[in-house]
Amino acid sequence: MATNMKAWRLEGIGGKLSLCDVAVPEVRAGSVLVRVEASSLMSYLKAYAEGKLPSYHAPEMPFTPGGNGIGVVHAVGRDVWHLKVGQRVALSSHFAATENVRDPAQILIGVTSFGPESEAVQADWPDGTLAEYALMPVSAVTPVEGLNEFESAQLAVLSRCAVPFGGLLRGRLTAGETVIVNGATGAYGSAAVLVAIAMGAARVVAAGRNADALEAVGRAAGTRVVTVRLEGDVQADAESLRAAAGGGAQLAFDMVGQAGEPSSTLSALSALRRGGRLVVMGSMTVPLPVSYMQLMFHNLEIIGNFMYPADAYRRLIELVRGGLLDINPIVPRIFPFSALPEAMEAAAKAGNLECVVLQP
């Protein structure tokens, strides 16, 4: 085995990003060393690397950034019993401490920590997937079985589906229900439409303001999808959503990114049936002014959710293998490993059904 590898290294958020020769990580207890075959890029990776996202907390020392990916197990450490060398696996950036405590710390490996307790976790697992090899905690690695017909670059788009899958699970989406996806013109919102169909939604109302992106996701997802172009008037948009949902939806999933005003979220809330649930999973930058009386009289729930459970990738893979989740509408744009700067530019501008992938 080679002792050195190529890896992208970032000297702290806003620091220098360089392609370097570094030592291949050594496996340790509870870890898996993976030869990375494809790494999906976050749309905001360029802004993150340039220090324009102050809410993110990266490791203080130089580290390898990167989120989720696909690879092949190269070596396993002690206390790893099921994963085997040679298996193709999916890599998740979301990792929560596995100790049996009330509130385990969590991080996004290669991206950010969330406070003092998670900084200690991040210090143990600082490096992400933008390298030829990635050392990962075993609970962040999922076998990819029965999908030999897919190239690793196509499977890398599962990272786009994992986030909304977590929110739809949290919202208790049940087969036969109608769900409104607010922000369906964005990357994760478009994936949410595909995932909701796979989970058995009878109807998905895809809502957003970009007519072309709405048309694209409606065409990709099939006949159970109805699109609604939002105009910004809370009451009028709520009426349009309610009509498209056949009198109201049981679930609304909000995935609007960096929303500077709450009108579309409030419209989705008002389009729910009695007893409906709203899952908020986007990144609104202003408060959400909800009506106390509206929530009470209509028995509504507002549910916050961050990321997805540890078994999300396994369950998504089962949906793909069973023919329920079609990931082909999300097209990977593949860049060579040396072209990370160009790939980050492309990721920032990618369409809602594009996923930029870096391949070593």
Rank of each mutant, 00 (worst) to 15 (best):
L319A: 10
G232Y: 02
P336M: 01
R102H: 11
D237E: 09
N148E: 15
T129G: 03
A213L: 02
S152Y: 07
T112Y: 13
M296Q: 13
L272M: 08
M61T: 14
P62W: 00
K6R: 15
L108H: 12
G247N: 13
K349C: 06
Y133M: 06
L266A: 12
D326L: 04
E119M: 06
V80W: 11
A140L: 02
E215C: 01
L45V: 11
A134H: 03
L10C: 11
A162L: 09
L10A: 10
R277P: 01
E117T: 07
A348S: 15
G67F: 03
A198Q: 09
P262E: 02
T265Y: 04
G218W: 03
E50Q: 15
R224T: 09
T98A: 13
S291R: 14
L241M: 07
M293D: 14
I197K: 14
S39I: 08
G30H: 10
T227K: 12
Y188P: 02
G146T: 08
A238E: 09
I330P: 04
A216F: 04
M344A: 15
G171F: 12
G12S: 09
P287L: 03
G51C: 13
V85D: 02
P59H: 08
D124G: 03
G110Q: 08
A236E: 11
G14P: 06
A23Y: 01
S338Y: 05
A249C: 01
R160I: 12
V356D: 03
E50A: 08
L91K: 05
R28Q: 15
S267Q: 07
A346V: 00
A310M: 13
G200T: 01
P25A: 01
F150R: 04
F95K: 09
A49I: 00
G167E: 11
N182Y: 04
V121S: 00
L169A: 00
A244M: 00
I13R: 12
R321P: 02
A58D: 04
A350T: 02
Y56R: 14
G183L: 06
A58G: 03
E231C: 10
P329N: 10
T223F: 07
A90C: 05
E318H: 08
Q122R: 14
F306L: 15
A123M: 10
V195S: 01
G14T: 10
W125M: 05
I302T: 05
P336D: 14
R28H: 14
G167F: 12
L168S: 07
A175I: 04
L17Q: 03
E119D: 15
G248L: 08
V163Q: 02
E117L: 09
T185H: 00
V141T: 11
V27G: 01
E119G: 02
N100R: 14
I302P: 04
S31V: 07
A140R: 09
S113G: 08
M307E: 12
G146V: 10
Q235W: 00
M255C: 13
V256Q: 01
L173C: 10
D326K: 05
M255H: 00
P287F: 06
I303Q: 12
A259D: 08
E231W: 00
P287G: 07
S43C: 09
F306D: 07
V226L: 06
P143D: 11
V163G: 00
